[in-house]
Design a protein around this nucleic acid. Structure first.
Lengths: 132, 132, 132, 132
DNA sequence: GTGGTCTAGACCACG
DNA sequence: GTGGTCTAGACCACC
């Protein structure tokens, strides 16, 4: 599971995790029944405190996106139906929208904007492949 | 100076102020030599504690965007063009960064991401021209 | 960490702290990765308000000399050698600047000024060697 | 009269003026009976508020270093006797002392220290000549 | 009038 | 436990 933590953004780590896991579920990257990485494992991989992972998982459980099976671990719940593509598009459109507004307001050329996006895309694409 | 404080966003007030003043400076809404609203005045207008405003102003001073003239008030500093460009790049890079991570996590192709950005860019570009 | 606060000097406490921590970092007394005393601990020890310490620490963070690890504490950042050298130069330039102005105003010749500096330098150099 | 105001040092302007006028008196750059520049003139030249100059002059008068002659202006008082060279040396030695300690503590070479002093000396020497 | 500093105390978020 | 934020109020220095 590809997760990118930004320690300097000020956004709490557990929130960053929740948002990204939610995305993976929406995307189908994580499918109903899939087991989540264990708290300890993920904590070690991301180099954050296990309690932080635990908090994120608990909140996802509260949302009903994740199910706890006692003694075994956490699994993606069966909530994955319909409208997924639409939701995906909307989620992505929001981020691009902000970027476009900012670019225009700051007078950044379309050429520069596109080339930066291309570069960043490649960066995270390769990171995500390495994490798989 | 137009400033909009969102008390419910969770983003610290002083950061909201910094971000908006910075944007006003970078986009030319505030020009070198312009005097900032006084701490007390702005505090009264936004209905927040003067120290909160003071904190925002001090940090802007630390960034070199704002200058104190003792006993008189605070003024927009004479920022080099290079510095402004650097700030712009940083501001824009942050938004593109988020978009790129989202795109990768949602499994959106680079091609689609770029074309959406192109489309949005054109949209806001033409909007901004009409407003001129 | 040795910190000496002079309440009667008129120099703001938070600036005294910043200057001394900065000096400890630059001279190697505090090394990258070292944890700073907690805000509350230092506040109690120096007998000042925690917010004053917090302000000093925040500004050091803004300078990039110190890093927050959320919920854990503050640590000396991994400062590049170049950055340290820059800070050193700035610190030293300030003292020489004052000396030069004084020399000119007192009508002391460049020759005498240089020879006094040479002499004082040798003095403290040998003192510092003896302490090693 | 050569005066160097540092707006960014945090030291109040009126104090900077007092200290430097005092130095000129000690040095003999200003002699008993010499008339001081008028408040307005000096204010215009240094580009500071006339009240700031006035405050500095009043405090110098309080020290007895300066005398007010009603309707005419301010003059250097007749306090200029003995020990002058000794005082000068001490004033200068203090600044060099600090510089030398800093240099040694920061590990700056004698060569670099001397060359910086040479450079700064030349800078203020030429400034002082222009102001005469 | 301007901003700067410090305090005391409350509350929050994070780990 | 950690730091961060905000408030209310006092006091200071400067112009």
């Amino acid at each position: 599971m590809f997760l990118e933590i930004d320690h300097s953004s000020g956004v709490p780590i557990y929130r960053q995790i929740i948002r990204q896991v939610r995305r993976h579920i929406v995307t189908g990257g994580l499918k109903p029944g899939d087991q989540l990485e264990s708290v300890r494992e993920l904590a070690a991989r991301l180099n954050v405190n296990p309690m932080t992972i635990s908090k994120a998982y608990s909140l996802l459980e509260g949302e009903g996106l994740v199910e706890r099976r006692r003694g075994i671990g956490l699994f993606i719940a069966d909530v994955h139906n319909g409208h997924v593509d639409e939701i995906k598009s909307r989620m992505f459109a929001e981020t691009i929208d902000k970027a476009a507004v900012t670019a225009v307001q700051l007078g950044i050329s379309e050429r520069d904007a596109l080339s930066l996006l291309r570069e960043k895309y490649a960066l995270y694409r390769s990171k995500s492949r390495r994490q798989k």
